[in-house]
Design a protein around this nucleic acid. Structure first.
Length: 506
RNA sequence: GGCCCGUUCGUCUAGGGGUUAGGACGCAGGAUUUUCAUUCCUGUAACACGGGUUCGAAUCCCGUACGGGCUACCA
């Protein structure tokens, strides 16, 4: 049987980075086994529905390159892929459970239950309490039917028999045992006719022929209910295998990574920009922070999973080949932003300059900088070993885009001597006379000139660097000159000479 | 509180009865480089604690502590 897995986010906000990792692991597992990766939108909670969230999720997966084989947009043989469009299905299976005596109607209002919990903090709706509550188990049939017909608020609850052991063989955690007596009779169908996660999930996973459920650890506790549902619906034989992923934890302190940590630590926690809701500040995503999607994927893949061997840099294809659920860790992994940055640096270094140029272009345009790909490619080539983020190309290499405004004065003081002026002027002429502005050819011709004039590199090169960039940091001198072109190079040398002389006078 | 899950360098992790406990990030130092960076080398630093089992335990078992998840007509 072919492997089918699903990523089933709820459109209640931006997809956070933990969700992205869950999607990634599902994707890797599917592809590793030549199976299908399905996107299903779990929008059964109408009160928490956030417009735009589904589009956000789709866009994020697209940016990351995690293509679904079946999805709301793409369709597929098991659609629809949005739970709100499958409402009738759930009602039908709830009815089946009711008929079989595996579920019952309950008429207690949320307020009544809240009051009960207020009085008795350990209150649980289960075998020990349901006998005293308003439900079809102990109300006379005529009465609860009347209630139903009159449209009184009601839900359908799962009837859980006490004194059973529920065994789950989790692919990551091994055998986990739950006692049914400790489980609550979960609501399956809400008063608004929508299913809860538990019902919808089981029905859809069954109908969509899901073979492996790979999801966050927060679902481990309710998996016992899910097993009972599979049994109750007669689907035990085709029940999927479970794998519960460890959570991603805050960089420092206790608890799992939350969206608040984004602002607190100045780190992205979402893949893409998210405007936020109800007066929240907007959030920049990894994309806006200047990350490459491949780097994000690689970073996330290794947060909680480790392949055989010491390799750390993986293409998506390599991740697929190397992936296995058995090698996923059990314990939570702290979000390590330094490591994320390191991956990004590595990916930027490896990327070809022409491709980088295309990524830099929008940012150059935005700043009103020179933005032809030819030039940008040169910038990319000389800066790719010096930046951490995509923004670095225009931010850190500002001097390649605009005239030098400030010069490292300390360095001028150290290196500039008035008697150097004639030589510097001659050098400027040499730059103006050079017939090639290919970095290597230019370097050669200038070096020949310097040798002839008996100019020492140690005395001259720092000054050239100052002239081109104003700062001592930066790419090789002749790379900069080559990118700048003859006219600009000569201009900068002339302006620099003025500044050098002036500073000495002052 | 109850139920469930977990615990190896600061962080991500490998290993899993006898190892100098390995790698990566970070940090520190060094080499290369006309600068910065890259690259390379070196260093720093860990088996939560207590009991067992065993010739031997970081590794197996039991407790404790700590951390995490769940405990909604949310997912």
């Amino acid at each position: 049987m072919s492997v089918r897995v699903r990523f089933a986010p709820s459109p209640t906000g931006a997809l956070h980075i933990g969700g992205v990792r869950t999607a990634l692991y599902n994707y890797l597992f599917a592809k590793k086994n030549q199976g299908q990766f399905i996107l299903r939108v779990e929008d059964t909670d109408q009160t928490r529905y956030v417009p735009g969230a589904e589009e956000y999720i789709v866009e994020a997966l697209e940016w990351l390159g995690l293509q679904a084989d079946e999805s709301p947009a793409k369709g597929g043989p098991h659609g629809p892929y949005r739970q709100s469009e499958r409402k009738d299905l759930y009602a039908q299976y709830a009815e089946q459970l009711l008929q079989a005596g595996k579920a019952y109607y309950a008429f207690d209002t949320p307020e009544e239950l809240a009051a009960l919990r207020d009085k008795e903090p350990n209150f649980t709706y289960n075998h020990s309490t349901r006998g005293q509550l308003r439900n079809s188990l102990n109300l006379p049939e005529a009465e609860w039917r009347e209630l139903l017909d009159s449209g009184a608020p009601s839900v359908v609850r799962l009837l859980i028999e006490p004194n059973q052991e529920i065994l789950i063989d989790d692919l990551i955690r091994g055998r986990v045992v739950f006692q049914s007596s400790e489980l609550d009779d979960k609501v399956l169908l809400k008063n608004d006719g929508m299913p809860t996660y538990h019902l919808a999930n089981i029905v859809d996973d069954h109908l969509m022929e899901i073979t492996h459920v790979i999801r966050g650890e927060e679902w481990l506790s309710s998996t016992a209910h899910h097993v009972l549902l599979y049994e109750g619906l007669g689907w035990k034989d085709t029940m999927p295998q479970f794998a519960h992923l460890p959570l991603i934890l805050k960089p420092v302190g206790n608890g799992k990574l939350s969206k608040r940590d984004g602002a607190k630590f100045g780190i992205p926690v979402f893949p893409l920009y998210w405007a936020g809701q109800e007066g929240e500040d907007p959030y920049d995503g990894f994309r806006e922070a200047g990350f490459l999607p491949e780097a994000v994927l690689n970073f996330l893949a290794l947060l909680g999973w480790h392949p055989e061997g010491d390799q750390e840099l993986f293409t998506l294809g390599e991740l697929i080949d190397a992936f296995s659920i058995e090698q996923i860790n059990k314990s939570g992994a702290r979000f390590d932003y330094d490591k994320a940055k390191w991956f990004n640096e590595k990916y930027i270094q490896q990327m070809n300059p022409a491709a980088l140029a295309r990524l830099i272009q929008p940012q150059a345009v935005e700043k009103g900088y020179r933005s032809d790909l030819d030039f940008l490619e040169k910038v990319a080539a000389m800066m790719q070993e010096r930046v951490t983020f995509i923004d670095g190309f225009v931010d850190q290499a500002y001097y390649l885009f605009e005239p030098v405004k400030t010069y490292d004065e300390g360095m001028i003081g150290k290196k500039w001597k008035p008697e150097l002026a004639p030589a510097f002027e001659a050098l400027t002429e040499a730059f103006g006379a050079a017939d090639s502005y290919d970095a290597q050819a230019l370097e050669e011709s200038i070096k020949v000139f310097m040798e002839k004039e008996e100019l020492k590199p140690g005395a001259i090169f720092p000054l050239l660097r100052l002239a081109f960039a104003g700062t001592m940091k930066g790419p090789a001198i002749f790379d900069m000159a080559a990118a700048l072109g003859k006219e600009e190079t000569v201009n900068r040398l002339k302006s620099a000479l003025l500044v050098f002389n002036k500073q000495l006078a002052g």
